[in-house]
Computed example of a mutant assay.
Amino acid sequence: MKLKFRLAYYLFGLTLGGMLVVFIFNKRGQDFCYLPNCRALKNIREKGIIIKEAGKQQLSATGVTQNDIMRSLEYGDIDFSKSNVPHAGGGKLYVIEGRTAENEPIIFEVVNYSDRAELLNVKKK
């Protein structure tokens, strides 16, 4: 059998198998979250973010809502050059860049502990 026919059979089988896998895993609610940014944001989302009184004051002063923070935890980007730094108390500091509902850029800092995540600082760009 010639090489081009082998390649055609291989690509046909690969495509068919890939489609089958996508249909099976989409029904189970699985998502692709293996990249570092996605994994860190998912970890913070699953723990839930705790906003203390100082964080609430910063939220009201900047005009950023809790929904903006949660949306940024879903679609935001972590600046790893400033993040993953040990923080006092055993957690790690993450600097997350996101956007508000009005599409204004925001930057906030979250300390990710083993059992919780706390909002430290919020500012608009």
Rank of each mutant, 00 (worst) to 15 (best):
E109L: 10
C33T: 04
N84Y: 07
C38V: 03
G76L: 02
I106E: 00
P86Q: 11
A88N: 09
L35Y: 13
F80Q: 10
Y34R: 12
E46T: 11
D115G: 07
I106F: 00
I69R: 00
H87D: 14
K92V: 05
V85Q: 13
Y94K: 08
D77Y: 13
L41Y: 02
S81R: 13
E109C: 02
A117Q: 03
I78R: 04
I50Q: 11
I50A: 07
G98F: 04
V110I: 14
I49Y: 03
A40C: 04
G55S: 01
I107A: 09
L59F: 03
K82R: 15
E53K: 10
C33W: 06
I96A: 10
Y94E: 03
R116S: 13
G89L: 07
K82G: 02
P86C: 07
G91S: 10
E109A: 08
P86H: 09
T62H: 09
E104C: 04
D77N: 13
R39K: 15
I96G: 01
K52T: 07
N103W: 06
N37L: 07
A40R: 10
I69N: 00
E74T: 12
N43C: 05
S83E: 04
G55L: 02
T100H: 08
I96T: 03
D77S: 15
C33E: 05
P105E: 12
C38D: 03
A101W: 11
N67R: 12
I44L: 08
A88C: 02
G89T: 03
A54E: 14
E97A: 11
H87F: 15
R116K: 15
R116C: 06
L93R: 05
I50W: 10
V95P: 01
G48S: 08
E74P: 00
F108V: 02
S83K: 06
A61K: 08
A61M: 08
T100S: 09
R45F: 06
Q58A: 04
R45D: 05
C33P: 02
I106N: 00
N37Q: 09
P86R: 14
Q58G: 02
N103Y: 11
N103D: 15
K47S: 09
M70E: 14
E104F: 04
N84M: 08
F80H: 07
